[in-house]
């Protein structure tokens, strides 16, 4: 039933071009560690789990918004939409620099790539600093989960600001995770572990960064622009 690999390798290749890479006789031993398609596939599935996590949060948001649409409308007006817009621009620019760093490494321009990675990290930090000021201003006005001020304003606004802190908070944690990830990538690029030939780690980190960016693109309108 089973023959050794050497005997049948050649005709198997011709017969089943659509099979897995092993069937094509493509990947063995050392090469398995650099299975580009496999790494990409795993990353996309991971991104999907992240997306599902936020789907649950958006489910919570939409249920409560349909219940308290008036209150959500009113509470949203209190958010600083200029600040939100500014942060959106920052994150979108960081996605650009992220993409540029990958293009640079693909052309073998190591230092350019590191420069763009550094820029991406800087923009991510900038985003967090803005977020910090935004949150502190709100907390200063007594608006935070379970605060007396908020409870007195009624159910709808309590839920709105609860969701605001929860969703932007979890998103913020993802930005921090992305910054840590990119810092590691920068070190790996410096050590030439990420290079012109092997750049899947940087590319996957880029995918993660874009995901964090896209989630913000949805968070921004549902909180800042519904008033």
């Amino acid at each position: 039933m089973f023959m050794t690999r050497q005997v049948i390798k050649c005709d198997e290749n011709k017969d089943h071009p659509s099979e897995s890479p092993l069937a094509k006789g493509g990947i063995t031993g050392e090469e398995e560690k650099h299975d580009y398609q496999g790494a990409k596939m795993g990353m996309w599935m991971f991104l999907f789990t992240e997306l599902l996590l936020f789907t649950g949060l958006f489910l919570l948001y939409s249920t409560f918004r349909s219940k308290y649409s008036q209150e959500f409308h009113a509470a949203s007006a209190e958010l600083n939409s200029a600040m939100g817009t500014f942060n959106t621009v920052i994150l979108l620019s960081s996605s650009l620099t992220m993409a540029l760093s990958i293009s640079a490494i693909k052309e073998g321009k190591k230092h350019l790539s590191i420069m763009f990675q550094r820029l991406t990290i800087f923009l991510g930090l900038f985003f967090l600093v803005n977020k910090y000021f935004e949150w502190s201003a709100k907390i200063h006005h007594g608006i935070y989960p379970n605060s007396p001020e908020l409870l007195q304003r009624g159910k709808g606004e309590t839920i709105f600001f609860g969701l605001y802190y929860l969703l932007t908070g979890i998103h913020g944690l993802h930005v921090i995770a992305g910054i840590i990830l990119l810092t590691v990538m920068m070190v790996l690029t410096k050590k030439d572990r990420i290079n012109r030939e092997v750049f899947i780690k940087l590319e996957n980190s880029g995918l993660y960064w874009h995901l964090v960016d896209i989630i913000w693109v949805y968070l921004f309108p549902v909180f800042y622009l519904i008033s």
Binding site: E19, L22, K24, I27, G38
Partner: peptide
């Protein structure tokens, strides 16, 4: 584990393992 197994089954089947 789920991500790992799904990727493994897609990518690492032996030659002829349709």
């Amino acid at each position: 584990t789920g991500i790992n197994f799904v990727t493994t089954i897609h990518r690492l089947r032996a030659p002829g393992m349709k």
